[in-house]
């Protein structure tokens, strides 16, 4: 591959608008898109705005849309892209552009703040015993590196602008962890239905398709949570059994903020 150059068309601009700018970058064996952006910064255009941290697919900072598909720049090899065509690099479309490839993703952090944190029972001072079988499925949601590619791709946010109604796939993954954790005592179903808006999801699985950590967001987070919500709201037989037996309820997560509402009587 040496002695070749690769053509990049990088979107450059700010909130008022922008356009693709063409750069030619020398090819290096095994190079990724982020390497090319660094080359452009060092030798062609020093002020090209790119957000990145670890360059090892562990921090989830360098999210972008490469040839129209949401990806991490540090994990997208040049030799995996069509060789005869220019490579288009654009910022994530679902978030406002700050400059060039950098977008304002602070909305996600505000959402996270609304979710009641992990809430265990009173501390009894003893180390917890948790068996592998109880926590096995909880490792997957913890792999999330918060690159927000799923948020960017989710059509509820991207195409329908339902930022008011839906928290987005990243936070369904967060809820999966909280809801299934054997030590978390909160019932999160009402919060999921009301403030998190899980009903907005129509499980078209794009979040799962773009996840660089290969988290099965739809199959293992959203659908199981939808089923839990269905237990509570869409299952007349369970409803009847609950009415008849009047079983004990867990304390519920608040539907308006991060707090806890009282246990319903």
């Amino acid at each position: 591959m040496p002695d070749e150059t690769i053509t990049f068309r990088v979107w450059r601009g700010d909130p008022s608008g922008g356009q693709e700018v063409e750069y030619r970058v020398p090819a290096v064996t095994g190079m990724v898109v982020l390497d090319a952006m660094h080359y452009i910064q060092a030798y062609l255009d020093g002020d090209l705005a790119v957000r990145w941290n670890c360059k090892a697919a562990k921090c989830g900072s360098c999210s972008a849309e490469i040839n129209g598909f949401p990806k991490l720049m540090c994990k997208t090899r040049i030799d995996g892209l069509p060789a005869d065509a220019p490579i288009h690099v654009h910022p994530m479309r679902s978030f406002p552009v700050i400059r060039d490839l950098v977008t304002d993703v602070s909305w996600n952090y505000r959402v996270n703040k609304e979710i009641a944190p992990f809430t265990p029972a009173e501390d009894d001072g003893e180390p917890w015993i948790m068996y592998q079988e109880d926590v096995q499925r909880l490792y997957e949601p913890r792999k999330c590196i918060e690159c927000f590619l799923c948020q960017n791709t989710c059509h509820v946010l991207r195409n329908h602008d339902d930022f008011a109604g839906y928290y987005g796939p990243r936070y369904m993954v967060r809820y999966q962890y909280l809801a299934m954790h054997p030590k978390d005592i909160l019932d999160r179903r009402e919060a999921l239905k009301q403030k998190a808006g899980i009903g907005y999801c129509n499980i078209t699985k794009c979040c799962q398709e773009v996840c660089p950590e290969h988290i099965h967001i739809t199959d293992n987070a959203i659908i199981p949570l939808k089923e839990r919500v269905a237990d509570e709201y869409y299952d007349p037989i369970r409803w009847a059994i609950r009415k008849l037996t009047g079983g004990e309820r867990k304390p519920e997560e608040s539907t308006t903020g991060p707090g806890i509402v009282e246990t319903p009587k």
Partner: peptide
Amino acid sequence: APSVRQPP
């Protein structure tokens, strides 16, 4: 909520 952004 994000307002000014590139249309899909």
